[in-house]
Design a protein around this nucleic acid. Structure first.
Length: 528
RNA sequence: GCGCCCAUAGCUCAGCUGGAUAGAGCAUUGGUUUGCGGUACCAAAGGUCACAGGUUCGACUCCUGUUGGGCGCACCA
């Protein structure tokens, strides 16, 4: 809708202009402060310029009126224009709010170590990434999602050691000496129990078998992680194994050497990342010849760029922000454009329950498990709350709020509006298809306002995606639902003389809510 | 010490690339036609946008500084 409005205005105005929403809807549907900037150029008052511009829109099909108020130019769209847009949307719901963008994007997110279940911090990035993906796809971007599996290195070794020793101590009754670092938490005990049952006991006699155990445990954990994700409606296009990438390490390393990015000192190889904005140079190969974690990420990004996307997005936990500079430096040295990589940070989450800090799970080893929260409030509520806040700000929320079955629970409130519309159609004994062709004219102010708002979804999505500020979508759905509840209380629909018109507007609201929820990974309810 | 993020109503948060009177929800208080689901709606009250400067027709928004929080500063991932 906005696109067509912009086209219509551009036909009459040469200058570039900003199109915004008027503060008060009674002014109009769209507005531009263009006259203020022109005032400077033409040395005329903004009011006079605005008045003049408004006269150019006297007989349009799209606009019912263009008026100047205090220098602002306000546009009101016509009933027939809204009707056209709504009819298109209703008759082809699956295409509603879709667009086309000729940009390919590789989106990497979650990428949690496969050494334990996902916790609540991972969940935020996971939900955000998944919805960014859904919205991007809907808007026509060629977007692919990827999970980078850290299946190599110390953490995996530690998983093996933890399993090995836990089996010995808990199930074979042997005395063991624990290293300084190992994984705790009941999930390790459960996993050890499983290992104990699955493997012949000989395997726990020789430390040489630890890698085998680690490999086995990693697969189990990866499976668990996928289940955690699945329970929140999250799936990935690809999983990329860190381990498998090391086959290309020499290749990548020689590329770096060729560009003069590597030097040797103290028996180690260093990346000159400080030349590209990092605070210091970083070790990529240790004294014993083993590459560091950074090496894996360098190969991975080499691999990503070789696949030739237009744009790359990584979603990381905010505690990794210090890592951005070195990865970008490496990308630069590899001869790629590091500006194509955009790193989004998901900030910390603090959970409350009944005003008190949420109890950590012993199972997890002092983390709040994502699965516990999903079990407690459901995937829909979890997704909603995480998407309702800007991802880069700290978030604190109380799970009890999402158990309420009234308007204090925003997800409930939106679902209720959707279910309500469905119920009205039942009461009226009609299907949405029955009212598609109803011609909307002489709409009263409330209906028109509601219809207009319901048609804003496409521009809300574009805005949310471009700015990566996904909270704009739930904000919009909340306001649309509120508008509908108000409308419902004020206007009798079934039995009204213009019932079909009101039903058509309602159907449009339902389409918008349903589409918006779907992009948040939430199914709309028809009955509650 | 250095770097990144943050500071808006009692609480949790919006506020679009600077634009019209700074907005929601919760909580509080007071209301709503025997109703297409009251699981909702209406209204009241609530603000020095952390503080101080600067940029301009205009600043919650941009710049600088101060204060107060969070996170990071590995050859761990």
């Amino acid at each position: 809708m906005k696109k067509r409005v912009i086209e219509a205005i551009s036909a009459e105005i040469e200058e570039e202009f900003i199109l915004e929403k008027p503060k008060d809807l009674s002014f109009g549907h769209y507005a531009t402060p263009l006259a203020f900037s022109l005032a400077k150029v033409h040395k005329k008052s903004p009011m006079l310029i605005a008045d003049e511009i408004c006269t150019r829109f006297l007989d349009g099909h799209i606009f019912e009126s263009a008026t100047s108020i205090k220098g602002y130019i306000n546009f009101k769209v016509s009933d027939s224009f809204l009707d056209t847009v709504a009819t298109e949307a209703l008759s082809d719901e699956s295409s509603f709010a879709k667009a086309y963008h000729d940009t390919s994007i590789l989106l990497e997110y979650v990428s949690a170590n496969p050494t334990g279940p996902l916790h609540i911090g991972h969940a935020r990035g996971a939900v955000y990434g998944d919805s960014l993906y859904r919205i991007g796809k809907h808007l026509g971007y060629k977007i692919e999602s990827e999970y980078y599996v850290n299946d190599a290195g110390n953490q995996i070794d530690l998983l093996g050691v933890s399993l090995f020793l836990t089996v010995k101590e808990k199930f074979l009754g042997e005395e063991v000496t624990w290293p300084e670092e190992f994984y705790r938490g009941e999930y390790i005990v459960d996993l050890a129990d499983e290992a104990h049952n699955e493997f012949a006991h000989d395997i726990f006699k020789d430390t040489k078998n630890i890698p085998q155990l680690a490999e086995w445990g990693k697969e189990k954990m990866l499976k668990l992680i996928r289940e955690n994700l699945d329970d929140a409606n999250i799936t990935f296009d690809n999983y990329v194994s860190e381990k498998s990438l090391y086959a290309h390490w020499e290749e990548t390393l020689s590329k770096l050497k060729k560009s003069g990015a590597i030097y040797d000192k103290e028996g180690k190889s260093w990346l000159k990342s400080s030349e590209c904005g990092d605070e210091k140079d970083r070790v990529v190969v240790r004294e014993d010849g083993r590459p560091t974690y950074l090496a894996g990420d360098i190969i991975y990004h080499d691999n990503k760029y070789e696949r030739g996307y237009d744009h790359y997005i990584n979603i990381w936990g905010a505690d990794h922000h210090g890592y951005i500079a070195r990865v970008k430096a490496a990308i630069h040295f590899l001869g790629y454009d590091e500006n194509k990589l955009e790193v989004l940070l998901a900030q910390m989450v603090s959970l409350l329950k009944g005003g008190e800090p949420y109890k950590m799970s012993k199972r997890a080893g002092n983390f709040i498990l994502m699965s516990d929260v999903v079990d407690e409030i459901g995937s829909d509520a979890l997704r909603f709350i995480f998407l309702s806040k800007k991802s880069d700000t700290h978030l604190e929320f109380d799970v009890d709020m999402f158990k309420e079955q009234d308007s204090s629970n925003p997800i409930f409130y939106i679902q209720y509006a959707h279910a309500r519309i469905n119920q009205i159609f039942e009461k009226a004994g009609k299907n949405p298809e029955d009212v598609w062709c109803t011609k909307l004219e002489n709409l009263d102010a409330d209906s028109k306002n509601l219809l207009f708002t319901s048609l804003l979804l496409p521009e809300v999505l574009e805005d949310a995606f471009d700015s990566r500020q996904l909270q704009k979508l739930p904000e919009y759905l909340k306001s649309l639902a509120a508008l509908y509840h108000q409308f419902y209380n004020k206007h009798k629909i079934v039995g009204a003389e213009n019932a079909d018109s009101l039903l058509k507007v309602s159907a449009m609201v339902a389409v918008s809510i349903r589409t918006g929820l779907k992009l948040m990974g939430i199914d709309a309810k028809y009955k509650m």
